[in-house]
Amino acid sequence: MKRQSFLRLAGLAAAVSFSACKPSGSGGGGGGGAAGGGKLVVGFSQIGADNPWRTAETESVKAEAAKRGIELKFSDAQGQQEAQISAIRSFIAQGVSAIILAPKVETGWDGILKEAKAAKIPVVLVDRGVTVSDPTLFATLIASDFVAEGRMAGEWLVKKSGGKAGIIQLEGTTGAAPANDRKKGFEAAIAGSPDMKVLASQTGDFKRSDGKNVMEALIKAHGAAITAVYAHNDDMAIGAIQALEAAGRQPGKDVTVVSIDGMGFAFEAIKEGKLNCTVECNPLLGPMAFDAVAKALKGEELPKQLVQEDRLFDETNAPAELPNRKY
């Protein structure tokens, strides 16, 4: 019951964003499949379903396929690159028109993508890139711009704090692309304000527990100098909020907390006044993915990267958005 209404909601959202994108030529693409007589068949190889973000991405692709009357062959690789490769191989054998791939890792795709290219099947990557010898092996990559997310968070904090803050930065997993880029974007945004000082920048490994542990330690080291926390994901922000509360501080009030991802629980925290702002990292890539598929099938040249638009939510617009959140 719950799941059904969820699906309907996802479908509705997909419909809304679809009509929003319509002038960009997707109408023609959708027509191409239908007018061609037979039903268009597209394969989608997903990494797994280990978090709500990924589940939302899967639902978005499924809903968009249903909406456009495209037959979707879906494969969940349960976190295994080998399973993704064999799924793609079976998509090729089944003669799909196009493949959507959310790659588990960056490397090791040359061989299978060459097989797809030889079969003249365009491959659209979603949310993560690959490193391949020949860039023509995939049509395009549709993903969020992590640097832009960090920059939005930084610009928001500069405005909110009036250009003066003692900041604790909780970084994501060391070396991971989202962590590197969200750090880069944020630090660039605050670089122009000399009174925006990063007191400490430590990794919380994208985990709630590590976010809390690190924050506990840094509260003792920097004390009242801390006026803001910037976390690379919502989980660490929640951990930091718990640590601040345990230390007698008031997150959301005397310490401004900013994070990235826009998960449902972050919206709850904004509503409770403990989190100040979250920049979404939108997983609803379905509409853009099928637009790209349509264009690739018509033989159009696509830019190698298409950026998914991410929005920022704070106490002014988060409560109204909360009922619409799908992840």
Partner: peptide, 9 residues
């Protein structure tokens, strides 16, 4: 290492 703010990398 946290207190000395040693870079995580």
């Amino acid at each position: 290492l946290y207190n000395q703010n040693v870079a995580p990398a």
